[in-house]
């Protein structure tokens, strides 16, 4: 645990010892405040909307936050030192991951500040705002885990960031992709069914099932209920599973790097 703590502290401080952390905070603050200010000047106070807006920008923030997690070690030549340290791979990965999550939490300080300002000006903080924040942060945790994984497998920061951006964009397009695959399956089953074994409704159902299954994997779809003010266990477990899986993949990727050291 102490080793994890040491890695966590070192990693968190590294965000503030370089310009990355400050610039990220500045951009996050600027964009969220832009949304907040426009609403405020129109006498509106819509925190759930602000968080949803910022969530749509994860595709930009998270890759910048996570791209350096492992690639920086590789660039500086400290990767071997880290891997040969007494800390286990899980401790290394969790230390770095938790530092990125904490950094993200600090970035969201603008949201808390806006809540306070709005409240002091007579606005109402609705329960849906709290559940939206949970959804917002859980999604960020899952995305940070994905970014961490790509940072572990990529050779440099740019590649890690670009791959993360592409994957996050795919998440955005997942529903469209799901529809395309669903209709492809329906058409395909219809085309190959020369003997008319499959009923047309069966082909449609199969396509719909595939579409549903792909959509099911999209993190943002799962937390939609949170933004309405409903707290559900299923999306909570789902997003934590996402984070766990990608952290597990990260440990495997690092282990692989260790073996391949000849």
């Amino acid at each position: 645990m102490k080793r994890l703590e040491a890695i966590f502290q070192r990693e968190l401080l590294s965000y503030f010892k370089s310009a990355t952390g400050w610039v990220l905070m500045a951009i996050f603050f600027g964009l969220s405040s832009f949304y907040f200010s426009i609403n405020l000047l129109a006498r509106g106070f819509f925190m759930a909307g602000e968080m949803q807006f910022m969530q749509s920008l994860f595709v930009m923030f998270i890759p910048i936050l996570t791209m350096k997690i492992f690639t920086e070690e590789r660039r500086n030549g400290t990767e071997v030192l880290l891997y040969t340290s007494p800390a286990s791979v899980w401790e290394i990965v969790m230390g770095k991951y938790l530092a990125a999550c904490t950094m993200f939490l600090l970035m969201t300080s603008s949201i808390w500040l806006h809540m306070l300002i709005g409240y002091l000006m007579g606005g109402m903080i609705h329960p849906a705002d709290w559940s939206t924040f949970i959804a917002f942060y859980l999604t960020a945790m899952a995305y940070i885990a994905i970014g961490t994984f790509f940072s572990a497998i990529a050779e440099n920061q740019v590649v890690a960031a670009v791959v993360s951006v592409v994957v996050f964009f795919l998440f955005i397009l997942m529903d469209t992709f799901a529809q395309m695959v669903g209709s492809f399956i329906t058409t395909f089953l219809g085309a190959i069914d020369f003997a008319n074994v499959i009923k047309s409704q069966g082909a449609i159902d199969a396509g719909a099932a595939v579409e549903k299954a792909i959509s099911w994997l999209t993190p943002s779809n799962r937390v939609a209920v949170y933004t309405e003010g409903v707290f559900s266990i299923l999306p909570f477990v789902f997003l934590l599973s996402y984070a766990f899986l990608f952290l597990f993949f990260t440990t495997r990727a690092i282990e692989k790097r260790r073996w391949t050291q000849k």
Binding site: H126, P127, A128, S131, V225, V230, I233, V237
Partner: peptide, 9 residues
């Protein structure tokens, strides 16, 4: 777990 949800509105 479909029922494991709470209406916070």
């Amino acid at each position: 777990g479909q029922e494991w949800k709470w209406d916070w509105t």
